[in-house]
């Protein structure tokens, strides 16, 4: 409000109420995308549309009240959106590796017995005893050499692509 007192007033060049209607419409479009689309990538894109409509509303309110806090909040919202996209796309890749699909209805169960051709994420130690029985040549050379031979279901090409 101190900022508002220091500044002069002028006719608003942008119809602010219509800007808020635009934000509403964009959010509705994003809502339809999230609820109706099957492709998980387009669902994530629709979430971005909804986040952008919220940003537009924040900037509009910032302009209407003469207060910069709304624009600072948009900055933070963009940072959170970037983090959300990074984690969300990592989940998409993990789900695709597990189910070979981007259809969100294929990922409606928390656990599934058949993991397909690729092994799920394995923690250290899970595979060790399982593979002890196969008897590698370098059995007595210690833990680290054994671990290097452990990943049976993951092909060499996949490993190279990952690292």
């Amino acid at each position: 409000m101190n900022l508002l007192l220091a500044a002069t007033t002028a006719p608003s060049p942008v119809p602010l109420q219509h800007a808020l209607y635009l934000a509403l419409a964009l959010f509705a479009v994003g809502l339809v995308g999230v609820t109706c689309r099957r492709n998980i990538l387009i669902v994530l894109l629709s979430v971005e549309i909804m986040l952008n409509s919220a940003n537009l509303a924040l900037v509009t309110f910032s302009r209407a009240t003469g207060n910069l806090d709304g624009q600072v909040f948009v900055f933070f919202a963009m940072v959170v959106a970037a983090a959300e996209v990074a984690v969300g796309l990592a989940i998409v890749i993990a789900v695709y590796r597990l189910r070979q699909s981007t259809d969100i209805d294929d990922a409606d169960e928390l656990a599934e017995v058949d993991y397909g051709p690729v092994a799920p994420l394995a923690l250290e130690g899970e595979d060790h005893h399982h593979h002890d029985d196969h008897g590698h040549d370098d059995h007595g050379h210690g833990e680290d050499t054994e671990a290097a031979h452990a990943p049976a279901p993951v092909s060499a090409a996949d490993d190279a692509g990952e690292e």
Binding site: L3, L4, A7, T9, F61, L68
Partner: peptide, 30 residues
């Protein structure tokens, strides 16, 4: 909420200077 007249002036323009002052002052913890 949507007045015909809005405040203008260099103090409330969303320049990098003004936004940066807010972020590194009032909102430094966030």
């Amino acid at each position: 909420l949507f007045p015909d007249e809005v405040a203008t002036g260099p103090e409330i323009e969303g320049t990098a200077e003004n936004i940066g002052g807010e972020i590194f002052g009032k909102w430094i913890l966030a």
